[in-house]
């Protein structure tokens, strides 16, 4: 109750200061990241499901080729924000961005002139539950290319191998590329989904709790993979697992009840958070 009140006061404060949140203001541009180019820039984003507001004035910046983790209790809006980045929320009736802008490379992605198809090709996504198509492993990887009109077998072969290697899955499946993808284990399926996402060479990969349905060994593999992918891609990951955020992200943003409470370098968030709620959450004192 106290916390809720605190949040309410906090958001009023933030509102009166026109979104100049005390900690969100310099989000992602502290320390070493100052030199990194900002890829995604959110400015006072509000989001509504029908009448109920899911996001309240979120402002943050996500730098290029870094792993940014979104943490927070269930229902705090972190997945919603993530799905705003490739406009997957468009699929939900009545869901809309009500105010604020999200810019990628300086382009407002909610501009009516934006080609959603092209946006989604550049912003790949990996879902909470692995969802390979009921096709062969090969065809799963090819899907993104085939819909773009690429049918050259040699190119496809090359991309399949490269993507599977990129997702650290090649050695495990190279002998059964034409078997159904549904025959893979959960962890393999999730890595296949990552391979499928990187096959279309996106710039950003959004991961919505990619390890929540996996066992610790599979989780470790995916985390290792995230570490590798960071060299080439900008990654935004939503996770419930604090350790995971600590292990594999460079920046961490803490959300609570649709508000961005704090965003900073991961190390700082976990060792010396500015806000009390963040500390409480990280140390497991509430939620």
């Amino acid at each position: 109750m106290e916390i809720q009140e605190a949040i309410m006061n906090y958001s009023k404060e933030a509102g009166s200061q026109h979104g100049q949140e005390p900690s969100g203001q310099n989000a992602g541009v502290t320390g070493d990241d100052r030199e990194a180019r900002i890829l995604i820039r959110c400015d006072k984003v509000n989001f509504f499901y029908g009448q109920s507001q899911a996001l309240h004035g979120i402002s943050l910046e996500i730098p290029e080729k870094q792993v940014t983790a979104f943490i927070g209790p269930s229902g705090c809006g972190k997945s919603t924000l993530l799905r705003c980045f490739n406009r997957m929320n468009d699929l939900i009736d009545d869901a809309k961005v009500g105010g604020g802008t999200i810019k990628i490379h300086g382009v407002d992605i909610y501009d009516p002139k934006v080609d959603v198809i092209e946006l989604r090709k550049r912003v790949g996504m990996v879902f909470q539950k692995s969802n390979p198509f009921p096709k062969s492993i090969y065809e799963n990887i090819c899907f993104g290319l085939r819909i773009a009109g690429m049918n050259d077998k040699s190119v496809l072969d090359e991309v399949v191998e490269k993507s599977l290697r990129g997702a650290a899955l090649w050695e495990e499946v190279k002998d059964r590329l034409h078997d159904s993808a549904l025959g893979l284990s959960g962890g393999q399926q999730q890595r296949l989904c990552i391979a499928r996402a990187i096959a279309v060479r996106p710039e950003i990969i959004l991961m919505d709790e990619p390890c929540s349905a996996l066992d610790p060994i599979a989780t470790a593999k995916v985390e290792e993979l995230i570490h590798e992918l960071k060299k080439e891609y900008t990654i935004v990951i939503v996770t419930h697992n604090m350790q995971q955020a600590g292990r594999c992200s460079d920046l961490t943003a803490f959300f609570y009840l649709g508000h961005l409470i704090e965003m900073d370098v991961t190390e700082k968030i976990f060792t010396n958070p500015k806000e009390k709620q963040t500390e409480d959450y990280i140390t497991g004192r509430f939620g």
């Binding site: 090709k121 899907f143 993104g144 819909i147 989904c193 499928r196």
Partner: peptide
């Protein structure tokens, strides 16, 4: 629904999603 989401997230349009994913499944 996950198939549809995955297909759209890979940049497929509605028709491609229907023809290549929904109907075969």
């Amino acid at each position: 629904k996950a198939y549809k989401e995955a297909s759209l997230a890979l940049g497929a349009n509605k028709l491609q999603t229907v023809v290549r994913i929904i109907v075969p499944t």
